[in-house]
């Protein structure tokens, strides 16, 4: 039975065969980092930009909303959809800046996961807002006379069927976004989460 102590001597005496010279090292330190934190940063920025662009470019028919009595509701939702990203971008930046490679390993992983969680919370907040706006808007729209005729075409259970269709589509959209989201971050953070679990286990 070989004891680990017997390996210490060879461990201390080892010298890597390919020693790099100062020129090579000098060039190396200026190359671009491909760390997981960089990836998280870029992906998060894309998420913020895409959601904000969708928010800005989705056309709103204000006249129709006024007729439906949804004008103030949509104004409120719009203001929220500008304030929420600002709050989350601030929190994300604050958490991102707190990631430090000279922290201890547990602290470093916690900071990375916390930063990532900020973006996750942002996405979920926006999706919840989206689902609420659609469902509330639909509830009000159902009471408008111009939509009543359409509902009546579904027969006796017209309202129920219409609700069923809307809820179904909202769930499908949320489900697809959630699936893509879990897939991307499942792959990206799987290893980090496993290491964190190993680290905090007794």
């Amino acid at each position: 039975m070989v004891d680990l102590k017997t390996y210490k001597k060879v461990w201390h005496e080892q010298e890597h065969k390919e020693q790099l010279d100062s020129d090579t090292l000098s060039k190396m330190i200026h190359r671009r980092s491909s760390s997981i934190v960089k990836w998280i940063f870029y992906i998060s920025i894309i998420e913020f930009v895409v959601l904000t662009l969708i928010n800005v470019f989705v056309k709103t028919d204000w006249e129709e909303l006024k007729d439906l009595g949804l004008y103030h509701f949509i104004i409120g939702i719009s203001i929220l959809s500008y304030i929420i990203p600002l709050i989350f971008i601030y929190l994300f930046y604050k958490n991102y800046k707190s990631i430090s490679v000279i922290d201890n390993t547990k602290g470093l992983i916690q900071s990375i996961l916390k930063t990532r969680r900020t973006v996750k919370n942002y996405i979920f907040t926006i999706l919840a807002l989206f689902a609420f706006a659609i469902l509330y808007g639909f509830r009000v729209a159902l009471q408008a006379p111009e939509y009543e005729n359409i509902i009546q075409k579904f027969g006796e259970n017209g309202q129920l069927i219409a609700w069923g269709i809307v809820v179904f589509f909202v769930l499908i959209i949320l489900g697809i976004i959630l699936l893509i989201y879990l897939l991307i971050y499942g792959i990206l953070l799987k290893h980090l989460k496993a290491n964190y679990k190993d680290l905090i286990s007794d």
Binding site: S34, S35, I36, V37, W39, V101, T105, L108, I112, N195
Partner: peptide, 15 residues
């Protein structure tokens, strides 16, 4: 110090 940064990179940052 170098050991700490190197291990942190290998465990937490390296893809």
């Amino acid at each position: 110090w170098m050991y700490r940064v190197a291990l942190n990179t290998a465990i937490s940052l390296y893809r």
